[in-house]
Amino acid sequence: MTTVEEGSYEKFLPEGIPSSQMPFWESLRAHDIRVQRCDRCGTYRYHPKDACPSCQSRKATWAPLSGRGTIYTYTVVRRAPSAAYASDLPYALVHATMDEGFRMAAGVAELNINDLRIGMPVRIVYDDVTPNWTLFRFTST
């Protein structure tokens, strides 16, 4: 997990993110993850959405998270999408049910792929991949 110069990062970076969704990415960069939470009914919205899937309210606040959850499902990738990812093979992708009750997907950090189990507790750590972009990953608690 080392930060590299913006132009020399060869994996995929987010593209086409609308300004309304940038607070999520800015929260990662600040190492203070926040996701939308409906002002009317309290439902969390992730990925960011224009409207609440529970009550269709368009009002939301960027709310902090515990950063903790349990693995809902996962896979271990053994055929990479591009050469930049191939050097990491094999690597895991995890979908976790967060303590707040919704699911998020990410890669993992310092977690042996042979230890992965559905139901395993995980927590979020940050990965500053470039000066402008930070990702989050799941690690063991």
């Binding site: 995929f12 987010p14 499902t73 896979t75 990479a80 992708l93 997907a105």
Partner: peptide, 19 residues
């Protein structure tokens, strides 16, 4: 972009359903 940054593939997208 919320997922492909982590190196998802179309196979991985279905593998998590299977798992």
């Amino acid at each position: 972009p919320y997922e492909y940054v982590y190196g998802t593939t179309r196979v991985a997208d279905y593998a998590v359903f299977a798992m």
